[in-house]
Design a binder for these strands. Sequence first.
DNA 1: GGAAAGATTTAGTGTGACCTAAACTATTCT
DNA 2: AGAATAGTTTAGGTCACACTAAATCTTTCC
Lengths: 226, 226
Amino acid sequence: MTALPVQGALTAPAEDCLKAIYDLERSGQGAAVTTNDLAHRLDLAAASVTGMVKRLADQGLIDHAPYRGVRLTESGRRAALRTLRRHRVIETYLVQVLGFGWDRVHDEAERLEHAASDELVDRMAASLGDPATDPHGAPIPTREGGIAELPAARPLAELAEGERGVVARVEDEDADRLRYLASLGVVPGVEVEVVERAPFGGPVSLRVAGTPRLIGPQLAAQVMVA
Amino acid sequence: MTALPVQGALTAPAEDCLKAIYDLERSGQGAAVTTNDLAHRLDLAAASVTGMVKRLADQGLIDHAPYRGVRLTESGRRAALRTLRRHRVIETYLVQVLGFGWDRVHDEAERLEHAASDELVDRMAASLGDPATDPHGAPIPTREGGIAELPAARPLAELAEGERGVVARVEDEDADRLRYLASLGVVPGVEVEVVERAPFGGPVSLRVAGTPRLIGPQLAAQVMVA
DNA sequence: GGAAAGATTTAGTGTGACCTAAACTATTCT
DNA sequence: AGAATAGTTTAGGTCACACTAAATCTTTCC
């Protein structure tokens, strides 16, 4: 496209790629992010990622060691955080001000984040009282490019029987799964208690704010509790 | 980019082109819109317009008679009005809810209109009480694709000495000119009276809500009064 | 009516972003 | 260590969107 990005000149695919790298660097501890990981995450052919990576490296946003992986540079990290801030502020605004469903905001924000100016995002944030987290419980980077460490939390899937905690965030972008979790009452802030865990990564039986629920292992891995 | 358009699959440049055609069809009465007009309006080389026109014609959005010009089809008109609605709702929202200046919203809306879903736009419109016009006084197309006729109004530049009226809209997209007009108090709704007109399209001396002002001929041509 | 002027289209380039298929590198397994 | 496997890059193709330069069509003006 060429649909033209707001200003500093990054294209939407480039911003998406940086965001994905940022995210994968966070989860995979310290290891360089591989082409394959990115391809899966972005739903692209690996060869396409190689091309994007080359462009980003040319712009000094990432370091690329061929066949070895990719790492954000300082300026790449800043760009990623700027996009992440946009995304999360927009999500929060859509939910809190415009009444979008928790599970519906992701795609909308995914598009708007590439079109909204920093000023717009700052105004949205200000009108929300500069919230620290988005509706899924993820921290919102500040205007200045800082970001709170993810509050310590373990996946629900790893809690032992009898343990209890409060849902800190839900790390999922799939609307169906989010909707399903929301329908069970599993949203940031509610208290959960693990009643029983099937072995070998089976389903988890729990109490969500008192009522008994059963959720599968994949889902349980996305729900972070503190 | 290919920054990816919201859904039905039109790209941002394509939407911009349709909007421009719609607009030019309105102003030039009945005549087909020429490649050159579009090139000027969109700030592109004429050859680039020919290419875009070909793509739009292939999709049945316009009829193109080579060397003769272009006309919107029914479906092209609908697409143009959808984009126009997005644009004007977004502008209105930015001004009324987020406190943007009247003169600053255009560029922001220009980008957002290609990323915002119909649902988002409808929610914005609803939260504004489904306004009929945008901050510049231009009518906002409805959800259903209708649009009010532009209220009858003449350019300020054509009023005779002694005539008075109310500013209906300001047909300009240039932020500097809008800011200047706003600084003179020339915004939709205010009463103006022509005190004196220099001949041969010279400046116009007027009273804006009582206070004397002087504005040049180009600007006066953009200010529509009823 | 024909030639100059002006508008429009065609031809040929370049870039970003995607793809598949083939070549290559690194790792892992015996 | 060498071969199979898995992951990565290169090669080559496509499409949308821009450009300039060259052809072509229309109109307008004697």
